[in-house]
Computed example of a mutant assay.
Amino acid sequence: MRPSERMQQYRKPLVVGMVIFCCIIGGCLFPIVNCNPENPVETSLGMKTIILLSVFLFYTELGMLQSALFPKSSMGFVAVLNLALASLGLIFRYLLEFGEVSNTYNFTAPNVALHLFALTLLPLMTYAAQKYKS
Rank of each mutant, 00 (worst) to 15 (best):
S74W: 07
S74R: 07
M75V: 08
M75I: 09
G76V: 02
G76E: 06
G76P: 02
F77H: 11
F77T: 08
V78E: 02
A79L: 06
A79E: 01
V80E: 13
V80Q: 12
L81K: 10
L83D: 08
L83E: 09
L83A: 11
A84E: 13
A84T: 12
A84P: 11
L85A: 11
L85H: 10
L85Y: 09
S87L: 09
S87Y: 06
S87P: 11
L88D: 09
G89V: 05
G89P: 08
L90H: 04
I91T: 14
I91E: 08
R93P: 11
R93W: 13
Y94M: 07
L95P: 10
E97W: 14
F98W: 15
F98E: 14
F98T: 12
G99Y: 06
E100S: 15
E100D: 15
E100N: 15
V101I: 14
V101F: 08
S102E: 12
N103D: 11
N103Y: 08
N103M: 11
N103P: 10
N103C: 12
T104P: 12
Y105T: 03
Y105D: 05
N106P: 13
N106A: 14
N106R: 12
N106Q: 15
A109N: 06
P110I: 01
P110A: 02
V112H: 03
A113L: 07
A113P: 03
L114A: 04
L114E: 02
L114I: 04
H115V: 07
L119D: 02
L119N: 06
L119S: 06
L119K: 04
L119W: 04
L119I: 09
T120A: 06
L121G: 00
L122G: 03
L122E: 02
P123F: 00
L124M: 01
M125N: 03
Y127D: 00
Y127M: 00
Y127G: 00
A128W: 00
A128G: 03
A128I: 01
A128D: 00
A129C: 07
A129W: 01
A129G: 05
